[in-house]
């Protein structure tokens, strides 16, 4: 919503906002946009008001015997009434929503409902962003995208955003790609909320580790071929000192191997599996942008996959699958 002050443009009025509600920062922003100087009176300012004052966007008054005569306008926060119907300090909570691999259709009904009722949405780059169209008007959207080797928001900061907004009485949805708990750092977010005394819920998602191969026609298990699968992160090479994956064990298991975040290290990973004795003819595939219109699939075997993936320009986000199940299904005409 937009607040329009009944004053000519350029008059720079001095405005006092009293009784600020949980969406006071929106009120303040709207006033600042019109050139106002803004003071806020609140006996118990929340973290967001303190933050605004700290950034010198407002002057904060905690005393209640303020001389209102020196202001051009004294404004009771107009977003307060609307907001308190659904949000106050007692309703603050966090819902961790697994958004699935990207298409809106693979978000769960529970996930969609959480998005629709959220006051704040904290989103990843790979979350089903089409769902945001169904968020409440005025819901705050915070993008905390992690672009590989690029801009990112540290996890500690994401945790702090979730906690701050929930403590201000807002219903926060953490919307991410895939499932929260499959390399999604959902456990850390959960713990941060619990430590801050904030109610937190989990809505599991369709994991990309399973759905991306499925959408490309690759089942992870197939009777008579394999009755299980292993999911590991390939974000560091097997030779990296930070790597703690038992590649030898994976090579002898006979289960389907799924590697997430493994585009850059693919040549090293396949070489390591070959050295561990896995058959070079083992079927293997990489899928980029799974489930999206730009989805690309490269099939080969353990020996040929890295070169084929490079030739097809397979980039993150991608899922690699290795094992006999890769060729279990005939490609659909």
């Amino acid at each position: 919503m937009t607040l329009r002050l009944p004053l000519p443009d350029g008059s720079a009025p001095h405005v006092l906002v009293v009784e600020p509600g949980p969406r006071a920062s929106e009120t303040v922003q709207s006033l600042l946009d019109q050139g106002a100087r803004v003071d806020v009176q609140s006996p118990a300012p929340d973290a967001r008001l303190v933050d605004l004052a700290g950034r010198r966007l407002i002057t904060l008054h905690t005393e209640d015997d303020l001389d209102t005569g020196r202001y051009d306008i004294v404004l009771r926060d107009p977003l307060r009434a609307a907001a308190t119907a659904t949000t106050d300090r007692t309703t603050g909570r966090v819902v961790l929503v697994g958004g699935g691999p990207g298409p809106l259709g693979l978000l769960t009904i529970a996930g969609l409902e959480a998005v629709r009722t959220a006051d704040v949405l904290v989103c990843d780059r790979l979350a089903p962003l089409a769902a945001l169209e169904q968020a409440k008007p005025g819901a705050e959207v915070v993008h905390v995208g992690k672009i590989p080797r690029g801009e990112f928001t540290p996890q500690e900061q994401i945790n702090a955003i979730l906690v701050d907004r929930a403590l201000a009485g807002r219903r926060v949805v953490r919307l991410k790609g895939g499932d929260n708990f499959v390399f999604g750092r959902g456990g850390e977010e959960w713990n941060a909320c619990v430590e801050a005394g904030i109610p937190v819920e989990v809505v599991p998602g369709v994991s990309s580790s399973i759905a991306v191969p499925a959408l490309a026609g690759i089942p992870l298990t197939h009777r008579s071929l394999t009755q299980g699968f292993v999911v590991v992160s390939g974000h560091v090479t097997p030779e990296d000192p930070r790597s703690d994956i038992d590649w030898d064990a994976l090579a002898r298991l006979g289960l389907t191997i799924v590697i997430l975040m493994g585009v850059a290290a693919l040549p090293e990973i396949t070489a390591r599996l070959l050295r561990a004795g896995l058959d070079p003819a083992t079927p293997a595939a990489s899928i980029a942008d799974g489930g999206m219109p730009s989805q690309r699939l490269v099939r080969g075997d353990l020996a040929t996959l890295p070169a084929a993936a490079a030739a097809e320009d397979i980039g993150a986000p991608a899922v690699t699958v290795i094992g006999p199940a890769v060729s279990a299904l005939l490609p659909q005409a």
């Binding site: 708990f181 499959v182 850390e188 299980g228 699968f229 590991v232 992160s233 703690d244 298991l253 289960l255």
Partner: peptide, 14 residues
């Protein structure tokens, strides 16, 4: 959580 930073870096389903 089937994975958790510093606790589990992968999982197997069988």
């Amino acid at each position: 959580p089937v994975t958790h930073r510093g606790v589990a870096r992968g999982f197997t389903v069988v």
